[in-house]
Amino acid sequence: MEEKNVYQPYLMRIASIIEETPDVRTFRLEFINESEGKNFKFNAGQFGEYSVFGEGESTFCIASSPTRDGYIECTFRKVGRVTKALASREVGDTIGFRGPYGNIFPIDQWKGKSLLFVTGGIALPPLRCVIWNSLDLRDNFKDITIVYGARSVQDLVYKHELEEWGKRGDVKLITTVDPGGETKEWKGEVGFVPVVLEKASPLSANTIALLCGPPIMIKLTLPILTKLGFSPENIFTTLENRMKCGIGKCGRCNVGKYFVCKDGPVFTFAQVNQLPPEY
């Protein structure tokens, strides 16, 4: 075939696997074809279709930073047919990846600003990409604050990185677990993300907020951000509608006149507020 098959994935080798929680894994993936890897470029916020051949494709963000060359990482929870099959793969196995798709967090435009990340559970991976991207370009930003919560200590993902961020003098990290989810050794906060956020009361002046989490967390956190002085234009999120093709054809991520895959997944809440509530 002369023209490119847009549905043909890159073949990727699983270079390493981290068990984040009993049902969440992070894969580091390397391009089997080196020249494909050299030519591959992406930006923070973009996603891809990851596949196990014979089981199908699943949509996740690229969880690693574009500042780290030579690999991409994805973090997923074992839930459906494809993610269960993915979770059963081992280091050295081949999986497929199509991407990068979608728009990006405009971090080039955020030079000189402070960044506030507010996120919960398995919604940290899409923001982890932006966190590492901004930490790798640390001089470009003022304060960097991360508020991250999970149901329980066990459910926190990227535990080693949380530890690393906590030790850095140039990041303010607040971790929290839902009441009842704490352990004896837990040194972080206990409480829901919106409550903990309000208590921490980070400054909104010259600050971009990045909010990503389950629908209920978003719903309860937005009023707090508003109260803290954030305008909808300065609160960014990434929508996660169900997708198949990732390139605006299969139709299922359609919300109003937009496709989340092609016009998103990154939106400001000023934009989200204009959308029909179908996300």
């Binding site: 549905y7 014979g54 494709e57 198949k244 093709c245």
Partner: peptide, 17 residues
């Protein structure tokens, strides 16, 4: 109507998307 689904099918070691 143009919307579609994507599914894998296999027969032994051979498969199609």
């Amino acid at each position: 109507c143009t919307c579609f689904d994507i599914q894998d099918e296999t027969d032994g070691s051979k498969g199609v998307r």
